[in-house]
Structures are given as structure tokens and as C-alpha cells.
């Protein structure tokens, strides 16, 4: 769907192109239009009396393509924006974090790969810890505390108070607790353990702060 590569390649030009962003945008639109036309190639267009499923998408795709061509044409005639720099770190970690959440929240299988459903107790911290590294200022300690405190909050809020059918922990976890414990009790106990761990981490690592973390602090702030 996206064509970041062309974009990056065009950024260092000097020539007839006066609005590189327009060129890249135009190419993107034309690619999109081509994709839509290809996807609807087997569908019936129908008549006005009984419009087929392909009629509107096809005309829209043509419209999108024409807009793309117009953008490219104007890019040679008028001055426009240069291409912005792409930083791939942000999108990369954000996407990986979301995917990690998606594949761990409930049992997942894709081809040969299959994962057991680990529930919010794993998916939540994963999303925060991985996602947190999207910025170069990420600090492991902060993210750890954040994930250990937000996750139990969400577990109690969604799983306990609101009773949502969102998987909270793997069934196997129940085996760790005495047989008589109900699901809710296990949920609460797990949440308390996590919250306690968050507090423990907070206090245990506080002393180390002046020596190690402060350095990161300076580079992170200004």
C-alpha cells in the first residue's frame, strides 16, 4: 500500500521536479488505483438499472488515479514541499508492539506458527515495553514500572469490574493457585502481585538513579 522507498530515493534531487512530495503522493495514489482496479477486475460492473459491485469502485479508482496524475503533473510546474525525512524507528516499534499484543492476547495460529493465548497479563506489558522503545529516550526502568502498574489496573478494570470477555491470563496460571480459588480471586491476586512488583522495582532501583539514569536524563531532555 505504501511506497516509502520511492519517496526516500527522490529526496536528494535537483532537477525538473519542483515538488517532490507531489511526485511521491501521486505515485502512491496511482499505485492505489492500480491495486483497486486489479482487485475488482473479475467483478461485474452492471448497468444503471442494476449496478454491479464493480461499478463504483472502478470509477473511484479511476478518479484516484487521475488525481495522482494531476499531482505529478503539477509537481513539474509549481514549487512545492520537499519530502520529509523518514524515521523508521518510531513506526517500527509501534507496529511490532501492536502486533505483539494481537498475537498474544488469545490463542493465535498462522501457518506453522501457533501461540497459546497468554491474555492481558502478557500482552499488555509486551505492548508497553516494545512500544516504549519507539523513542530513543526510552528507559527500561520507567517502562517496566509503567507496564507493571497499568496492566493490573486494566486487568481489574476490564476483567473484574466490567466483566469483559477479554482474556486476562492463561488458564494454566490457575494451576498455580489453590484449587478452590475463583477466577476473580486469581485475577485480583495476580494484579496485586504485579502492582507490588511495580512498587518494588520503583524503590529498589531508585538509589541507582544519580549514577546511571541521570546521564540518560540529560541526553533525553534537551
Amino acid at each position: 500500500m505504501s511506497t516509502p522507498r520511492e519517496g526516500v530515493g527522490l529526496s536528494g534531487r535537483r532537477g525538473p521536479v519542483r515538488a517532490p512530495q507531489g511526485i511521491a503522493g501521486g505515485i502512491l495514489l496511482i499505485a492505489l488505483a492500480a491495486l483497486a482496479l486489479w482487485l475488482t477486475r473479475d467483478l461485474d460492473q452492471g448497468t444503471l438499472n442494476a449496478m454491479g459491485p464493480a461499478m463504483l469502485p472502478r470509477w473511484l479508482a479511476i478518479g484516484v488515479g487521475l488525481s495522482g496524475l494531476a499531482l505529478i503533473a503539477f509537481a513539474f510546474i509549481r514549487d512545492g514541499e520537499p519530502l520529509e525525512r523518514w524515521s523508521l524507528r518510531g513506526p517500527f516499534f509501534v507496529i511490532v508492539a501492536i502486533l505483539a499484543f494481537a498475537v498474544t492476547i488469545r490463542p493465535f495460529s498462522f501457518g506453522a506458527l501457533s501461540l497459546p493465548g497468554l491474555g492481558l497479563v502478557v500482552a499488555g506489558p509486551l505492548a508497553i515495553l516494545i512500544g516504549g522503545y519507539a523513542t530513543p529516550e526510552a528507559r527500561f526502568r520507567e517502562l517496566l514500572i509503567l507496564s507493571l502498574s497499568l496492566t493490573p489496573f486494566c486487568m481489574v478494570l476490564f476483567g473484574d469490574l466490567l466483566n469483559l470477555p477479554i482474556p486476562v491470563f492463561p488458564q494454566e496460571l490457575a494451576g498455580l493457585f489453590p484449587a478452590g480459588w475463583s477466577q476473580k480471586a486469581i485475577l485480583r491476586a495476580t494484579a496485586i502481585v504485579m502492582a507490588a512488583a511495580a512498587i518494588a522495582v520503583f524503590f529498589a532501583t531508585r538509589k541507582a538513579r544519580p549514577t546511571t539514569i541521570d546521564v540518560a536524563d540529560h541526553s533525553g531532555r534537551i
Binding site: 497459546p116 497479563v121 502478557v122 492463561p170 488458564q171 494454566e172 496460571l173 490457575a174 494451576g175 498455580l176
Partner: peptide
């Protein structure tokens, strides 16, 4: 959790 989950999985 993961280690225990694996063990407990056999018993359930």
C-alpha cells in the same frame, strides 16, 4: 509464569 504454565498445562 511461562514455566509454570507449561507444567500446569499437563494437569488441566
Amino acid at each position: 509464569v511461562l514455566a509454570l504454565a507449561a507444567v500446569a498445562g499437563l494437569a488441566t
